[in-house]
């Protein structure tokens, strides 16, 4: 039982990371039809940029973090929207999706060549201790991840549902045409979702990197699980991606513990196929969310 609780907490922690990535992915998809295949690299890169800023400028951690985060928001929030999505979307969804694959290669290889091919330590803001809860050894880092991720997701949920700006954004996601007629600055709202996506990626990156270490290839698994989380949960704003992320995280953790460490990746994949077969709109999705 104690073991089970430990795995459960670990699963929720990684699940929260997947949820952060999946929420950003879903937001961007809904507002701009951008299927961002570089989403995993979006989570990999902020930590690398922070370490790079510290290494190159000799800056203290806080300054390095500030520079790295600002650079990421600027390049992969605003810049991604203006330089990649805007000129590409007029050619259609397919070229844009392929462009994000090209972007993922550039980000991954760039991190490998420009930073390091080896995994690097990333400073943790909580001690790497474990505490005993009901006889289970639980890492403080996992607790911190869960707390931070849920705080951020709660904040986002409040922003989307409770503020005027957030409601405008939601309207844009659900129906851009009507939103435009209602006088909502659709373009600016779409840009906002890209900035939020970048911000969520930063949070995920800073939370996961102390555990996974900062490495150029981290994005592969995180990206894959973010996509699975988004589909399993259903493309239904924040809620679906959150549930999807947690389900995938817990399934992954349990699979590693009780089925096979080698094939832990395979179990969420099976989950994906089962969901697509039985409930293609996702666990939380309503039938037919999107216009054609």
């Amino acid at each position: 039982m104690a073991e089970f609780i430990a795995y459960l907490i670990a699963g929720i922690a990684t699940g929260a990371i997947y949820a952060l990535a999946a929420i950003g992915f879903t937001l961007v998809w809904q507002t701009s039809q951008t299927i961002n295949f570089a989403q995993g690299e979006f989570v990999m890169l902020p930590a690398v940029l922070v370490l790079l800023a510290i290494k190159l400028l000799g800056a203290p951690i806080w300054l390095g973090a500030l520079i790295g985060i600002a650079a990421f928001i600027l390049i992969f929030g605003v810049g991604f929207k203006l330089a990649v999505v805007d000129p590409m979307i007029r050619h259609g969804v397919l070229p844009l999706a392929i462009a994000t694959m090209a972007l993922s290669i550039i980000m991954k290889e760039g991190a490998k060549d420009g930073f390091s091919a080896e995994a690097q330590n990333f400073p943790s803001f909580v001690p790497t201790q474990t505490i005993e809860v009901f006889g289970a050894a639980i890492s403080l880092q996992h607790i911190a991840i869960i707390a931070c991720a849920f705080a951020v997701i709660g904040l986002l949920q409040w922003f989307v549902g409770g503020t005027k700006l957030g409601r405008q954004m939601q309207a844009t996601a659900q129906n851009p045409m009507v939103a435009r007629i209602l006088g909502i600055p659709v373009e600016r709202m779409v840009l906002l979702t890209f900035v939020i996506n970048a911000a969520l990626a930063i949070v995920a990156s800073v939370l996961i990197s102390p555990i996974y270490l900062a490495k150029f290839s981290n994005g592969e698994v995180i990206g894959l699980f973010a996509f699975i989380a988004a589909i399993v949960g259903g493309f239904n704003q924040v809620r679906g991606a959150l549930v999807g992320g947690l389900v995938v995280g817990i399934v992954d953790s349990m699979a590693a513990a009780y089925i096979s460490t080698q094939y832990r990746l395979a179990v969420p994949l099976v989950l994906l196929v089962v969901i697509i077969l039985l409930k293609p709109e996702g666990l939380m999705g309503r039938k037919e969310e999107r216009r054609v």
């Binding site: 299927i35 295949f37 969804v93 999706a97 894959l224 996509f227 699975i228 589909i231 080698q262 094939y263 990746l265 395979a266 994949l269 994906l272 196929v273 697509i276 077969l277 293609p280």
Partner: peptide
């Protein structure tokens, strides 16, 4: 078959998953 039953772009995710699965099998 299962992917295209739903929507064309679901094929992207199913093949993504398949790609990882093959990789795991080849390595393990």
């Amino acid at each position: 078959f299962p992917a295209l039953r739903v929507k064309a772009h679901y094929l992207a995710f199913v093949t993504l998953a398949f790609s990882t699965l093959i990789w795991l099998i080849l390595r393990n």
